[in-house]
Design a protein around this nucleic acid. Structure first.
Lengths: 249, 249
DNA sequence: GCCCTGCCTTGATGCAGATCAAATGGGAAC
DNA sequence: GTTCCCATTTGATCTGCATCAAGGCAGGGC
């Protein structure tokens, strides 16, 4: 599906430090590499709504999300916007070998990022193949997610789009906070407009289709943001996904 | 734009052999690695229309396109189809670390692929960091292309979509066959239906919009497939692209 | 020459979602 | 409490593209 399932390594919660180590390096730990990463890292924090970087700006760092949510969006001259990625904790942003940002990166919640200046990071990549292999895996996951999203954008109906997005968020939420009960409850991390930008819809259509899913009993709403998924299989069915709805690994 | 500009290395034409060396290895050549790749490669050819592999099938090889064009498509149970990638000569297909195909791969023209069994290829990657670095670059390019295509699918009109596709093909054609004259002429490598599957449209809409661009003088047609771009800047303008329409590198 | 087949074009109509517009409601500041 | 603000909902209408339905046309087999 469009949003990749974050790979939450089991020891993530135990480590208050920068998560890039877990995603990019820890899998094949080496204390020397870790030390070098540790040494060059620095933190940046942003408030909800703040822009991290504008498309086209010089970008002399790479980073990973420690906490909060950021979005990648593209904008046409006339203002039409399309979100092309959602950055969750442990996700990586920035492109070794490119010096300008290709997308607007915006904090949708308060955001903490762990950054590395690009040049030394690139040097580290050159000398430690583990890291580029890890980055390759992550990038391939993102590519799969982007292609899954292309199917959604090109061929799904508004109702299917909404159900797909809810299913993704629900699944991610379950993996982050394993359930006691059978019901899945979560807070939408996006406004209706942000959902629209992600799904290639207008905010009015998003609102209408969310209401329709509520009327049909697929979900329940508490306030505008808190969603209860009454029947996850039904949600997947509405989303038009394959039986498992899962992400091939 | 959606289709990445193929990186045509200058010596590509001079080498009749498998192109993966140029994309994945040659940039930082090492005769030993080349010899190992050379040793394990084998060729497979397909006729136009043939399916290379179905989504979900076991895929025990990776490959690069030597000649011809292949497509990556996803299909929903009810038959809705979305093309998510177009493979041109020198493009790579297959995913180290995954054992099943994620998409249908189909030859749209006669196709020759240079294949490597997955296991030994993965072993080679582990021992030669150059290759995973090269694969990372290629994958990042594909990711950018996929995200550009998300903007097209989510926010562009039918007319803009057609113009965008024509602009991409035209630009690729220019880079492959440098022009003598100012006019760009090429044969469409896709049927109307394939264009529709790529653009998230129906084939009727594709046909109508191509005709409209012809009526408006943006392009000329000779038969159904041969296209002349009368004014490339005008085409880019219709496509709704940024001034250069180019691909950030 | 003929017909057949696949691809493409063109026309008529319908509808999902966009657009325009107004109302609702909840939270924060006071 | 009241007011303001802004996200959201809801309603009315419009429209771009899909859908349904006929042709047209070029190439290949005979």
């Amino acid at each position: 599906m469009g949003l990749r399932e974050p790979v939450i390594l089991p020891h993530l919660q135990d480590c208050g430090s920068c998560t890039i180590r877990h995603r990019a390096v820890c899998a094949r730990c080496d204390s020397d590499e870790l030390a070098r990463l540790e040494q060059m890292k620095y933190y940046r924090s942003f408030q909800a709504g703040q822009t991290v970087i504008w498309s086209g700006d010089r970008m002399d760092f790479v980073a990973s999300v420690v906490s909060g949510i950021a979005t990648l969006t593209q904008t046409m001259e006339d203002g039409r916007r399309q979100m092309v990625g959602l950055l969750l904790p442990s996700d990586f942003v920035g492109r070794p070998g490119r010096s300008t940002a290709a997308y607007d990166v915006t904090a949708t919640t308060d955001l903490l990022m762990c950054c590395f200046r690009k040049k030394p990071f690139e040097d580290l990549i050159l000398s430690t193949p583990h890291i580029s292999q890890r980055l390759l895996e992550m990038t391939l996951d993102e590519l799969d997610a982007a292609r899954e999203w292309m199917l959604l954008l090109g061929r799904k109906t508004a109702r299917e789009k909404i159900a797909s997005l809810l299913a993704i968020i629900a699944r991610r939420d379950v993996s982050l906070n394993p359930r006691r009960s059978g019901l899945i409850v979560f807070d939408l991390p996006l406004t209706r407009e942000e959902m629209a930008d992600y799904l290639g819809l207008t905010l009015e259509t998003v609102s209408r289709q969310v209401s329709a899913l509520r009327r049909d009993g697929v979900i329940s709403l508490e306030g505008k943001r808190r969603v209860t998924v009454n029947d996850f299989d039904r949600l997947l069915e509405v989303a038009g996904d394959d039986s498992d709805g899962g992400y091939p690994v």
